[in-house]
Design a protein around this nucleic acid. Sequence first.
DNA 1: CTCTTTCCTACTGGTTTTATATGATTATAA
DNA 2: TTATAATCATATAAAACCAGTAGGAAAGAG
Lengths: 144, 144
Amino acid sequence: MKISTKGRYALRIMLDLALHNSGELVPLKDIAKRQGITLKYMEQIISPLAKAGFVQSLRGSSGGYRLSRQPSEYTVGSVLRVLEGPLAPTGCLSQEMNDCPRAGTCETLGFWKGLNEVINNYVDSVTLEDLMKQELTRQNDYVI
Amino acid sequence: MKISTKGRYALRIMLDLALHNSGELVPLKDIAKRQGITLKYMEQIISPLAKAGFVQSLRGSSGGYRLSRQPSEYTVGSVLRVLEGPLAPTGCLSQEMNDCPRAGTCETLGFWKGLNEVINNYVDSVTLEDLMKQELTRQNDYVI
DNA sequence: CTCTTTCCTACTGGTTTTATATGATTATAA
DNA sequence: TTATAATCATATAAAACCAGTAGGAAAGAG
């Protein structure tokens, strides 16, 4: 019942990009240094995000990544799903084709559907912008 | 982000015991037959439930298992936790000792705490009795 | 004693996780 | 054009986790 490092790191990378969103491209090396994640592992994580169109990239010197959209337009759930797949607590809920032979008579299916709903409702109710605001508030707390 | 078979089967076993709660002991063999789970695997699953005091057992001929308490006194969350451990989406939330060095500055910790809360609130809001009622209603639907 | 059922422990094959390592390709600056 | 700095693509591997299977010991009923 755990989110893997890939999903958690993906969220941190996206949030880092949101917090350093000056219009300039941000090189992975900078994010790696700030987040304490190895460059090579981060490459594996940002690649699916790029393929999903969540970030834009430019190669070469002075290249890097930037968000494709505004931070408010990414729910945390949408980011996690790129790396984790469906955030369903059971396999039978994560596919359109419900191939579970017990589906018709399963006494616990209703419960799992409910759990699936509260999880997905929550992760889709929070955006990158929300996390940015939280983080900026937290940083100001230290200034006092 | 999946619940393993052990947790899911544990719930089905507990619910099966609740639905066949005549006061008599229910042998695992019967549950195995009804639920389509092998006896040997079920033994591994019910053993922690017995150690946790969730079910009472008697060995030998005409032995078996029964619930220790009323179905209304078991939340689904409490059952799942026996087999799954804490239902936290990240490791840093599942232990009192928060040994994550990022804890003080983590920008995403608040989000994960929120997810942890909605998950645990939900699983603890549903009891075995609730699932029994659902199941009995469902069975009646077929009678019509 | 015999049969049944719980109880206990170990083992196994497969998959997933969490990376690390090596190198190829591409684009920009000077 | 050359050097540099970045993305992109595989390959490898230790460790953990998952989903069972298997064998037998202990206890109770008749």
